[in-house]
Amino acid sequence: MNLYRSARAVAGASGDDVIDWKSTAEAAKAATDPGSIALAPGEREAYARDVRDARDGVRSVSGLEFDVPATVEIQNRHHWIDANVATFERVMGTLEDHAPSGAFPAVARTLNTGSMTVLLSFLGRNVLGQYDPLLLAEAPDDDHALYFVRPNILAAADALEVDPDRFRRWIAFHEVTHAAEFGAAPWLSEHLEQRMEQGIATLSEGSFDRSAFRELDAAMTVVEGYAELLMDHAFDDEYADLRRKLDERRQGRGPIQQLLRRLLGLGLKRRQYERGKHFFETIAKARDLETASLVWEGPAYLPSHSELDTPKAWLRRVDR
């Protein structure tokens, strides 16, 4: 980790865009210890086995037809930053297309590059696993991606005082549930992309499209909540202690980390987990998992914001 080199990379931001992405990647990696991916004997196969078992378990309980990405990557923190710089650049492209030049574009570029550096550095040190549906990719037929950030998984397991193999397996099951969702709903990526582009475009024009962001939030609540429901049924071990310890660790962090989590909307993600899980638990209890899976039939089957809080209203609307 070299904070001087990181600051120098930010200060040297250049180009015509509102963010210098090359400098962002360089600065974020300079500020972040990459960690090791020197795998122990049998560890690579253990990752592969966890993913296969998760796929089979989720298929069995959900009845969904899907497969996991052809490539499953075991990454260090720098690998994750490189992969996600590309993602952020795609997502922010809409903003760049509409961004005003301003009186001091070089100053704005440096500030924006610094902000993205802080964001990617923080996430790079904390993300455990990621299913990436490649939103806004230039080649929409590219395979989706599944990442495991090994140094973060080991560090979190050590801090939580839990068995690292069991913790890794839990992460694998959670990420594979997301693969199941996007596999069962080929329209979901485009649905999220449209709301994301619409919301970012209006922000760059100085307005706020509340409808687009509410629809995006509702869809992500469904994605996170359904994943939690599948985890409850598919994971082959009790995991309440893992969830509790992870939440306690997040809440016990220092004020700067807590502020970053709020600014990054990570508290919102936890709310999406809880709200979405309550919605699907209610549906599964009233009917079954097959009925809960109706959300993937098409955009019209997604619950509205109000229906997320009144699951039986959604059930009355889609009941066949």
Rank of each mutant, 00 (worst) to 15 (best):
A25L: 06
A25I: 00
A25Y: 00
E26V: 12
E26T: 13
A28N: 05
K29E: 03
A30H: 00
A30E: 01
D33V: 10
D33L: 11
P34L: 04
P34C: 04
G35K: 01
S36D: 06
I37H: 04
I37Q: 01
L39Q: 02
L39M: 04
L39R: 01
A40R: 14
P41W: 00
P41R: 03
G42T: 08
E43W: 08
R44I: 08
R44D: 03
E45Y: 11
Y47S: 02
R49D: 11
D50N: 05
D50F: 05
R52H: 12
D53Y: 10
R55N: 06
D56C: 07
G57V: 02
G57N: 06
V58D: 00
V58H: 07
V58Q: 01
R59F: 11
S60V: 09
S60I: 09
V61H: 11
S62G: 07
S62D: 04
L64W: 06
L64H: 02
E65Q: 14
E65C: 04
E65Y: 07
F66K: 00
F66W: 05
D67A: 12
P69W: 04
A70D: 14
A70L: 10
T71F: 13
E73A: 10
I74G: 01
I74L: 11
Q75L: 15
Q75M: 14
R77M: 12
R77V: 05
H78Y: 05
H78W: 10
H79N: 10
H79Q: 11
H79W: 12
H79E: 08
W80A: 09
D82F: 02
A83C: 12
A83N: 06
N84S: 08
V85I: 15
A86L: 07
T87F: 13
T87D: 12
R90F: 01
R90W: 08
V91Q: 10
M92P: 08
M92W: 04
L95Q: 07
L95Y: 06
L95I: 15
D97P: 07
H98V: 15
A99R: 02
A99L: 13
A99G: 10
P100C: 12
P100M: 11
S101H: 12
G102E: 09
A103S: 15
F104A: 14
F104C: 07
P105Q: 00
P105S: 07
A106N: 13
V107G: 03
R109Q: 10
R109A: 05
R109K: 08
R109C: 11
T110R: 14
T110H: 06
